[in-house]
């Protein structure tokens, strides 16, 4: 069963069409990189997948649960890290995680235990009781990932998670997520415009001007398009220099 199936999805803001006929699937336990330049429609696509926006055309299914008919069941399977930081800066990381756990119906004891486990795993346990506003950008991102994992999701969506981070911070975050994908079998959708974040074994979906230009295994894109690298393939698909 696919972790995520997107079928013929479309969306407009007024007369401005931002997504059109978007279809792709992410298999269980796979890492899928959603590649697209700024304004390609990645964030809108995330908003549709997470139910923040209502899909006007097409459908989204999470482990077979349709978002429009069974949104609560679909959302329960999903962990989300949004492009905009969503930590409550007036709370500590521990409180942020426990708030999220409560929204997902976890009992208090389990929530306390899991918050320590997830923060420890992402290397920020020592900041559990500090105000979130005192954390660096990279630490906040790691806390957000820890939070998204609190309820044990089987699908993790990350919208440009490395935006604003320095190179070592980006690499560390990417490594953490790849470990999660491998060790826990979580399917990951990683939206980015940084081509260097694509791994050879990943799946890629190239999104440009609201349409899927190419979808498949990362190691097949260059041979299929007859170019030398992913960068060249991306440039030829999106018309970017």
């Amino acid at each position: 069963m696919n972790a995520l199936s997107v079928e013929d999805l479309g969306h407009s803001f007024g007369s401005r069409r931002v997504l059109q006929g978007v279809s792709f699937a992410v298999a269980e336990g796979r890492m899928c990189v959603l590649l697209g330049r700024n304004g390609a429609g990645k964030t809108t696509l995330f908003s549709l997948i997470t139910g923040l926006y209502h899909a006007r055309a097409g459908s989204v299914q999470v482990f077979g649960q349709a978002m429009d008919a069974h949104s609560s069941d679909a959302l329960a399977q999903m962990g989300v890290v949004f492009q905009l930081p969503t930590l409550d800066l007036d709370l500590t990381p521990g409180e942020n995680l426990r708030y999220h756990a409560a929204l997902h119906g976890l009992p208090t004891d389990l929530s306390k235990k899991r918050s320590r486990e997830e923060l420890s795993r992402l290397g920020v346990l020592d900041r559990i009781d500090d105000p979130a506003r005192a954390l660096s950008g990279g630490q906040r991102r790691r806390v957000e990932i820890a939070r998204a994992l609190m309820h044990g999701p089987r699908l993790l969506l990350l919208d440009e998670p490395t935006a604003g981070l320095d190179v070592p911070g980006r690499r560390a975050l990417e490594r953490h997520v790849r470990d999660l994908c491998r060790e826990r079998g979580i399917a990951v959708v990683w939206a980015t415009h940084f081509l260097e974040e694509v791994g050879a074994d990943d799946d890629i979906v190239v999104l440009d001007q609201g349409r899927v230009r190419w979808a498949g295994r990362a190691d097949r894109i260059s041979p299929e398009l007859g170019v030398e690298s992913i960068a060249e393939a991306f440039a030829s698909l999106t018309g970017s220099p």
Binding site: L52, S71, P85, T86, L103
Partner: peptide, 14 residues
């Protein structure tokens, strides 16, 4: 505006 509303609205409850 800061984004944290998204967390509430993507909780698996009506």
């Amino acid at each position: 505006e800061m984004g944290s509303m998204r967390l509430l609205l993507t909780a698996p409850l009506p």
